[in-house]
Amino acid sequence: MMKYIEEAKYIWKNYVPKSGQSDTVEGELIRAIEKLRYEAPNNGNGNWDEGFELFCYYLWDILNDKSVFGKHVLDEIRADIDTINNSEVPYFEDDLYDRITDHIIEWSLAHKGPIKREKDPKQYR
Rank of each mutant, 00 (worst) to 15 (best):
K3G: 00
K3Y: 05
I5N: 11
E6L: 13
K9N: 15
Y10C: 05
W12V: 02
P17N: 07
S19L: 10
G20F: 07
G20I: 05
S22V: 06
V25E: 13
V25A: 04
I30S: 10
A32P: 05
E34V: 09
K35W: 09
R37D: 09
Y38E: 12
A40M: 11
P41G: 10
N43A: 14
N43F: 15
G44H: 03
G46D: 09
W48A: 11
W48G: 11
G51H: 07
G51I: 06
F52E: 13
E53F: 09
L54M: 13
W60Q: 12
L63D: 13
N64G: 01
K66C: 02
V68F: 03
V68A: 10
F69K: 11
F69P: 11
K71A: 12
K71H: 11
K71M: 08
V73I: 15
D75I: 01
D75H: 06
E76T: 15
I77N: 07
R78G: 00
A79F: 05
D80C: 09
I81T: 02
I81E: 05
N86C: 10
S87N: 08
S87V: 00
V89M: 04
Y91N: 06
L96R: 13
R99M: 02
I100R: 01
H103P: 00
I104V: 13
E106Y: 00
S108F: 02
H111M: 04
K116N: 08
R117Q: 10
R117G: 04
E118T: 11
E118Y: 05
